[in-house]
């Protein structure tokens, strides 16, 4: 690791200003992904601007929204009483990610900014268009067991690794951003992007834009929610496939539903069409299976991840069943 310079800032304004002065600089908060990437030589900022002390840690109710500051720690959000009561899907997804030690360090903003865990991205002597545009995609014909089945391109088949973001995508969260050109609100599902021809860009933030927090609008998903994460070991592993499922049930009828998948695409994979289809249907395994088939439209696998074409719909059915059974 190069011996970068280090600055500490205490306001978002100072953070944005400091970053704009130097295009080799980078913000650091929890550091759980950035330090990893710097140790691997994947990222080499010459200056780190420490934003971990920004006053953006609050988790609070604001009108008909829950507001979570960008610097709130993953564990604090997961265990927050308001979140557990009003947004339990988010709490479940957070608890499924990483380990408690990492959740104690990682921030909400940082979680959103984490890079893919694709091994070709991580190893600088292997080809990767995300790390080094034009060098090729090592995973396309290589070790792609963990890789995308939706929305990939021949430039990149990496997946977004977060659990938290899958829930936030399902919950219609809004990302609050401050930047040199002013403030913006980005719908969560528009925050991360598909790789296309520019896989080096994970999301739609402009350089210099800082995530200030997120907002989750009130919703009825307080009971029938489930986050199912299928992985190679029982804990502390990235998802092969994960499903965030939330339902608003009235008797045996689905008034409304939310569904998103992780481990299947370059971004949290929201299944809006399936949600619409589910509306008004009665709860049954057959309905869930049909919904799962609908969800798989356009899926494409790359060899070692062919199993996801079966696992993903199965996981959707299981997540919906489990959500239904919550009491």
């Amino acid at each position: 690791m190069i011996n970068f310079e280090y600055l500490r800032v205490s306001t978002p304004k100072a953070a944005i200003e400091a970053l704009s002065r130097d295009n080799t600089s980078q913000w650091i908060a929890g550091g759980t992904n950035l330090i990893d990437l710097m140790k691997k030589g994947v990222m080499a900022p010459q200056k780190l601007i420490d934003i971990s002390n920004l006053p953006l840690k609050e988790i609070k109710k604001e009108g008909n929204k829950v507001h979570i500051g960008a610097m709130a720690l993953n564990s604090d959000v997961a265990e927050n009483e308001l979140i557990q009561r009003e947004q339990p899907l988010l709490s479940l997804a957070l608890a499924a990610g990483a380990s408690q030690q990492l959740r104690n360090m990682a921030t909400v903003g940082g979680n959103m900014m984490q890079r893919t865990r694709c091994p070709y991205f991580y190893n600088t002597d292997l080809p990767c268009n995300k790390r080094q545009p034009g060098s090729g995609c090592g995973a396309l014909k290589g070790f792609n067991r963990m890789h995308a089945i939706f929305g990939a391109s021949d430039k990149c088949i990496a997946v977004h690794p977060s659990d938290m973001c899958i829930a936030l995508a399902a919950l219609d969260a809004m990302v609050l951003v401050n930047g040199p050109k002013g403030d913006r609100r980005i719908p969560f599902t528009d925050f991360h992007r598909l790789p296309g021809d520019t896989p080096q860009k994970d999301n739609t933030l402009e350089r210099g834009e800082l995530i200030i927090g997120i907002e989750i609008p009130d919703n009825p998903y307080r009971k029938n929610v489930h986050y199912l994460k299928v992985r190679d070991r029982s804990s502390y592993a990235f998802a092969l496939v994960s499903v965030a499922a939330a339902m608003d049930l009235e008797g045996g009828t689905i008034k409304d539903a939310r569904l998103a998948m992780g481990g299947v695409a370059h971004k949290p994979w929201r299944l809006s069409e399936v949600e619409t289809w589910l509306k008004g249907k009665s709860v049954s395994d057959a309905v869930f299976r049909e919904a799962a088939q609908l969800a798989m439209r356009g899926a494409k696998a790359y060899g070692q991840n062919n199993f996801k074409l079966k696992l993903a719909p199965n996981a959707i059915v299981e997540a919906l069943k489990a959500a239904t059974q919550k009491t």
Partner: peptide
């Protein structure tokens, strides 16, 4: 990854 003769995990 036998194309590169190196472990990837």
């Amino acid at each position: 990854d036998h194309r590169f003769g190196r472990p990837v995990n």
